[in-house]
Computed example of a mutant assay.
Amino acid sequence: MATPVHTDLHRGNWVDRFLPVAARPYARLARWDRPIGIWLLLLPCYWGLALARSFDPKTWILFLVGAIAMRGAGCTLNDLFDRKIDAQVERTRTRPLPAGEATVRQAIVWLVVQTLVGLAVLLQFQPRAIALGAASLVVVAIYPLMKRVMDWPQLILGFAFNWGALLGWTVATGEIGGPSLYLYAAGICWTLIYDTIYAHQDARDDAIVGVRSTARTFRGHSKLVLTLLSFAMVLGLHMAIEIAQLSPYAAVAKFFVLGHLSMLLARWTTTDPASCLATFKASRWTGVITLGALAAGQIR
């Protein structure tokens, strides 16, 4: 019996069923068929808004549109940088660029379109928030290169994916900083946890092609390190809650965040790609529970 191919692209989803053939490579470049990344980018934005006690529906919808656009732009940029590496890794060789479903030129045009949508959303906010959002593009741009030069590229991903915690707070309050800095730190720990889990799928291939990751850096100590990062995430969340003077309900609810992380790590099998992917996807619920804790902090 042939060994099943491990891939992150699965045919027959809504992209294949409902989109025209010509549009499918663009949807796959933006990972619309795998919305987990939208969750992971959007939730820190909502954390920042909830921490600032801002629940305006228009703002939340704008952040949703922006997260879809910028996550897609980030994935497209990543695929452009990594197209030669992706062709050598079992999980990624069926992506549109290494598989020949899209050209480099098409991917660049698509990248520009998505970035312009994100810019249009950003321009709806005040100047200070616009400047902060624009600054995030520097981190987004350098992340795809980090796996070639540093052992902790997931740290840079954490800087990029949790920028929304700072931006959400700034949009709501008009100020940069405050308790959102602790929330940002908590989010970075969260990203290190879930993306290390994700990177364990490719640890073998990454070693062959020379791609660095925390999965390779931590080696057999990943569960221990991620457990420590779980405590660090909850500590950052605790500090944000205390400084923002949320109600005691948030302080209690943060322990559900730690409980969920503990459950994920206990169930995770580091050497099983299916377990890695399932645990990674389940990590979004850690973010949802965190949002719930911040929302509970509004109850008096």
Rank of each mutant, 00 (worst) to 15 (best):
residue 158 G to R: 06
residue 285 W to T: 10
residue 288 V to T: 11
residue 72 G to M: 06
residue 89 V to G: 07
residue 270 T to G: 05
residue 94 T to D: 14
residue 138 V to P: 10
residue 142 I to V: 11
residue 132 L to G: 01
residue 224 L to Y: 08
residue 32 W to C: 09
residue 277 L to I: 06
residue 144 P to D: 10
residue 71 R to S: 04
residue 4 P to V: 11
residue 235 L to C: 13
residue 224 L to I: 05
residue 201 Q to A: 01
residue 104 V to G: 13
residue 236 G to E: 07
residue 140 V to R: 09
residue 286 T to L: 12
residue 197 I to R: 03
residue 300 R to F: 15
residue 131 A to F: 12
residue 262 S to G: 15
residue 29 L to W: 06
residue 171 V to M: 12
residue 149 V to E: 01
residue 119 L to H: 08
residue 166 L to D: 09
residue 106 Q to K: 10
residue 198 Y to T: 00
residue 39 W to E: 05
residue 63 F to I: 03
residue 100 G to V: 02
residue 178 G to W: 03
residue 18 F to R: 13
residue 208 I to T: 10
residue 25 P to N: 14
residue 56 D to A: 09
residue 120 A to F: 04
residue 282 A to S: 14
residue 123 L to I: 01
residue 270 T to M: 07
residue 271 T to K: 13
residue 142 I to N: 11
residue 297 G to V: 01
residue 14 W to D: 13
residue 210 G to H: 07
residue 201 Q to F: 02
residue 72 G to P: 08
residue 77 L to E: 05
residue 35 P to T: 05
residue 261 L to I: 08
residue 175 E to Y: 04
residue 238 H to Y: 10
residue 60 W to M: 07
residue 22 A to H: 15
residue 162 N to P: 02
residue 218 F to V: 02
residue 246 L to I: 10
residue 35 P to D: 06
residue 10 H to T: 15
residue 87 A to S: 10
residue 170 T to Y: 04
residue 186 A to H: 11
residue 231 F to G: 15
residue 259 G to D: 02
residue 263 M to L: 14
residue 1 M to R: 14
residue 161 F to G: 02
residue 100 G to Q: 08
residue 247 S to E: 13
residue 172 A to H: 03
residue 299 I to P: 07
residue 68 I to P: 12
residue 238 H to L: 09
residue 222 S to Q: 05
residue 288 V to K: 12
residue 221 H to C: 12
residue 247 S to G: 15
residue 5 V to I: 15
residue 222 S to A: 10
residue 85 I to V: 12
residue 17 R to S: 00
residue 134 A to Y: 12
residue 297 G to R: 12
residue 119 L to F: 06
residue 204 R to E: 08
residue 125 F to E: 00
residue 101 E to I: 10
residue 173 T to C: 02
residue 88 Q to G: 04
residue 159 F to M: 11
residue 282 A to P: 12
residue 233 M to T: 09
residue 54 S to R: 14
residue 299 I to Y: 12
residue 240 A to E: 00
residue 23 A to W: 09
residue 19 L to R: 12
residue 109 V to I: 14
residue 236 G to S: 11
residue 300 R to Q: 14
residue 48 G to K: 01
residue 9 L to F: 14
residue 213 S to I: 02
residue 154 Q to C: 10
residue 277 L to D: 08
residue 11 R to I: 11
residue 232 A to T: 09
residue 4 P to Y: 12
residue 169 W to I: 01
residue 74 G to T: 04
residue 92 T to N: 09
